[in-house]
Amino acid sequence: MSGVQRDRSEAGTTDAPEAPDAAAPVLLDVGCLKVHLRLGHAVIRAVDGVDFQVRQGECVGIVGESGSGKSTLARGITRLMPNVKIAELSGNLRFEGRDILNMGDRELRTLRRGRGFSMIFQDPLGYLNPTQRVGRQIGEALSQDATTGSYESRVWALLDEVGLPDPKNIARRYPHELSGGMRQRVMIAIALASDPKLLFADEPTTALDATVQLQVLQTLHRLHRERNMAMAIITHDLGVVAELCDRVYVMHTGKVVESATTVELFENPQHPYSARLIDLSTRRISQEHRS
């Protein structure tokens, strides 16, 4: 898929991010979150006392290298922790003031079904059901309370909103019939279907081609603005952070080592680890330019 020609203009997204609105109410409040995983006899402190906040309508980045605990943090916060044995899960985890760490399954499902939080993942092929048409997969995530429009028209509207051409046709496709970028857009449509206030994006562009990466990021940025939806982007790519985020948390070995606005971080990194990350990524960029 080229995806270059799209009727929806995404210009202007490369501007420097606006200053975060410090007065906006806190949407997600994480205090001293610990997610310790059990692996055989060992205990891995994947997330070890993290403080983390997202305000309404804000875009926050979580950066760190592989194994720094950033994905586990997102999984812990969204309570999507399958196939792992949890040794300890503690701390303060509040979404709009409601305790989600000790929330029952039913309440949690309601929160995921509408006006809560949702998540997109790194590998859109593995995270879409291969035997179901994408339209159906989006449809089953639609929030229940909204009453505008029929089921199909809402699915088509979502596909259009994430920048996919010919939504009626795409809705009938199976995931393997789409390109990587289109699949990630379908993933985003699924996440948007519940009309979330907060969207977690776990390495949303890592599995994509370089040219498609930028387009998907621009789409995410546009959605963030148009919907006034808060976002938390987990990435190891500081370029993504510079592009989208108002504030950044730098994670290292399960702890947040630095938290700053994006501008502050790039101009004056406080922690040596952050400085090294920035140094490495700028060096990589200059190498790419040379080649």
């Binding site: 196939n83 993942f121 593995g126 995270y127 993933m187």
Partner: peptide, 12 residues
């Protein structure tokens, strides 16, 4: 253990 089951859970 597949990803799309996590997606399904995330859908509520």
């Amino acid at each position: 253990s597949q990803g799309y089951i996590i997606t399904a859970r995330a859908k509520g």
